[in-house]
Amino acid sequence: MSRAAKITVDLDAIRHNYRLARSLNTAGHAVAIIKANAYGHGAIEVAKALEAEADAFGVACLEEGAELIEAGIQKPVLLLEGYFEVSELDYISEHGVWCAVHSLAQIEQIAQAKLSKPITVWLKMNSGMNRLGVHPDDYQAAFKRLKQLDNVSDIVLMTHFFNSDELDKADTDKQLAVFNKATEGLDAPHCMANSAAVLAWPTARRDWMRPGLMLYGSSPFPAAQENADKLIPAMTLTSEVIAVREVQAGETVGYAGNFCADKPTRVGTVALGYADGYPRHAVTGTPVWVNGQRSRIIGRVSMDMLGVDLTGIDAGIGTEVEFWGKNVLAAEVANHSDTIPYTLFTGITRRVYKHYLNR
């Protein structure tokens, strides 16, 4: 490896965060959500790190699930978006993949399919997000129809919250009420809690939980929260200073000259840019960590490089700069970039070297 841009993934941090989720509901189970290449952390590596204790793994689509199965992962794999083509049901059946079902039409497709083994269905309800899911008025009938099918073994009742990260809003309580009413009398386990609900909505934890963002040590909340404060960041994004120069007052740095020094400034050029996944919209002042001190980026982020303020810091060519991790939280960077930690993690590109700790 020549270029210094890399992410370091602490697998022990991910194990800690999964155990935190389980500790909040010891009587229930938890699907570790590793879709989108485990939010950029590496799906196979994360699955192997968690397989000894995770109850199941959640992915977006069959391609992501097949990758885990082909890598030798034995724990159940849940397709959170379900299947996209009827032909996928053959693979789902043969390999014991769990599958979300979100429409009455899909139920009839399963009824007509010729499967080698019955499948486990996670019946999704649209309790208010209005994205995917069976309408609450149709949910009881959908459940009863699935129970009639020889092609279906187990059923889990699920929904998804759209605003559980805002603890002062009534949306989650409303969705809980809709779900509770629509599932009354149905004998099947429940799954409702995403990361925010796992951490802060005890009545939503139920039989199964779906910790996602929290596995990677990032809080879904904009402010401190008792359980979220126990999370440990798993990904650290770093690179190195490749040039240093003294900029005088009145001189600019980077494209468009949108940073103009108001005093003599020591600028480090770092080998990291938006082609690596660092957000182009990060503004001057976005925090970084250099040799034990907080500093800031200055000027516009370019494709392969950016500027860091080294004024008053013992740093030079070869000094490592942390862009997010345990010293600078991804949420801080996101706040300076008009985005969210999810996009930072999943946006890391393939040219950034991945290094794993505590395999």
Score class of each variant (00 low, 15 high):
residue 124 K to V: 02
residue 135 H to G: 15
residue 162 F to R: 14
residue 10 D to W: 05
residue 54 A to K: 01
residue 358 N to F: 04
residue 324 W to H: 11
residue 44 I to V: 14
residue 28 G to Y: 08
residue 218 S to T: 15
residue 353 Y to H: 15
residue 343 T to S: 12
residue 195 S to V: 05
residue 63 E to R: 15
residue 27 A to C: 14
residue 268 G to P: 13
residue 17 N to H: 09
residue 121 V to S: 01
residue 259 F to T: 05
residue 185 G to H: 01
residue 267 V to E: 14
residue 129 M to W: 10
residue 180 N to P: 08
residue 22 R to A: 09
residue 90 D to R: 12
residue 274 Y to L: 06
residue 115 L to A: 00
residue 62 L to P: 03
residue 3 R to Q: 13
residue 59 V to H: 01
residue 173 D to E: 08
residue 285 G to C: 09
residue 235 M to P: 14
residue 320 E to G: 10
residue 102 H to I: 00
residue 246 E to C: 14
residue 142 A to M: 09
residue 5 A to C: 13
residue 242 I to G: 03
residue 94 E to C: 03
residue 99 C to D: 00
residue 225 Q to F: 04
residue 165 D to S: 14
residue 55 D to I: 07
residue 270 V to P: 05
residue 339 T to K: 03
residue 252 T to A: 10
residue 225 Q to T: 07
residue 292 G to V: 04
residue 157 L to M: 04
residue 86 V to M: 07
residue 241 V to I: 10
residue 167 L to P: 00
residue 311 T to H: 13
residue 153 S to N: 13
residue 268 G to S: 12
residue 116 S to I: 09
residue 129 M to N: 11
residue 164 S to E: 07
residue 263 K to N: 11
residue 287 P to E: 05
residue 355 H to N: 15
residue 92 I to P: 00
residue 132 L to R: 04
residue 280 R to K: 14
residue 314 D to S: 13
residue 141 A to D: 14
residue 35 K to L: 02
residue 26 T to K: 13
residue 337 S to K: 03
residue 245 R to E: 13
residue 28 G to S: 05
residue 15 R to V: 02
residue 349 T to G: 11
residue 55 D to R: 08
residue 322 E to I: 03
residue 37 N to M: 10
residue 141 A to Q: 14
residue 322 E to K: 02
residue 278 Y to K: 07
residue 323 F to Y: 06
residue 59 V to R: 00
residue 88 E to T: 01
residue 310 L to S: 04
residue 4 A to Y: 11
residue 327 N to I: 02
residue 131 R to K: 12
residue 290 V to D: 04
residue 46 V to N: 06
residue 317 I to E: 11
residue 124 K to C: 02
residue 100 A to T: 07
residue 351 R to Y: 12
residue 105 A to T: 11
residue 187 D to K: 13
residue 148 Q to W: 03
residue 12 D to T: 13
residue 189 P to F: 05
residue 140 Q to K: 13
residue 280 R to V: 14
residue 213 L to F: 08
residue 286 T to P: 13
residue 206 R to A: 06
residue 278 Y to C: 06
residue 292 G to M: 04
residue 212 G to N: 03
residue 289 W to T: 09
residue 197 A to F: 04
residue 201 W to C: 05
residue 356 Y to P: 01
residue 116 S to P: 09
residue 347 G to R: 01
residue 354 K to T: 10
residue 77 V to I: 10
residue 146 L to G: 01
residue 283 V to K: 12
residue 304 D to R: 15
residue 270 V to L: 06
residue 76 P to W: 01
residue 251 E to C: 06
residue 109 Q to V: 00
residue 125 M to V: 07
residue 306 L to E: 08
residue 227 N to Y: 10
